[in-house]
Amino acid sequence: MATPYQNPQRRGSLPLGIVLGVVVGAILVMFAWFALFDDADSATPGPTPTSAQPSDPVESPDPAESPEPEESPTPEATPDESAEPGDESVPGITTELPVGTWVTVLDSLPQGSVSAEQAIARAAELSQPDHTAIVIDANRFEGLNRNYWAVVIPGAESRAASNAVCKAIGLPVGNNCYPREIKGLR
């Protein structure tokens, strides 16, 4: 028989309580992290390729691919050869924009695996009646990740105006639609 001065029988388990406390703590830390550091206006594209990836692998696959188009009509080989990163003569690729203007980035395509023609086709897919997307060679502009074709809507005068373009075309500001300032030419 239990008297009022005796401790009641314990229920539960100390290890279970510790595990639940750790899980709840981790969830709270995750929410705090996103609340403090997740800013949709400063979203960035995927990771930048390492220096070992873009130089050698980018140049070696392009020559390997060019013999196949040469077997078909020869004029196709000329644009493929000119699609190498840093070449200014690719028709349809923009290499100059006014410094200080903003672009709304819709897609970033690696130059090592996507041809200039494929990037231009992607820009045509993403264009809308009041917002024409173009392709820029990111190697030519300060503030953009090198070795990418950037599919952008140019002409915004500020970050806010670029964000407004995302909203106007029905995309949330984030990884698939984000502003970038043209800081200069490389």
Rank of each mutant, 00 (worst) to 15 (best):
D130K: 15
P47Y: 12
G92I: 07
T78M: 10
A83N: 12
D80A: 07
E96R: 12
P54N: 06
L97F: 04
L20P: 02
P61V: 12
T48V: 09
G92Y: 05
S42Y: 14
P129R: 01
E70I: 09
P69Q: 09
S108I: 08
H131F: 09
A77K: 08
I18A: 08
A83S: 10
E71M: 15
Q53W: 11
A119N: 04
E88A: 13
T74D: 04
P45E: 11
L126E: 00
D107E: 07
E81C: 04
M30F: 14
Q53P: 00
I93C: 01
P57H: 09
D80W: 09
L20R: 05
P98Y: 10
G25F: 03
L109E: 07
A40P: 09
S113D: 09
V29G: 07
V99A: 09
D41W: 15
S108L: 11
D87C: 04
P54D: 04
A83Q: 13
T104F: 11
P63Y: 11
Q118H: 01
G112Q: 01
A43C: 08
P54E: 05
D62A: 11
E125S: 02
L28G: 10
L14M: 06
L97K: 06
I27Y: 11
Q111Y: 03
A64K: 15
T132S: 03
G46K: 01
G21C: 08
T74A: 08
E96A: 11
A26F: 14
A121M: 00
L126C: 01
P69N: 05
E96L: 02
E84R: 13
G92A: 06
G112A: 05
V58W: 11
R10Y: 07
L14C: 02
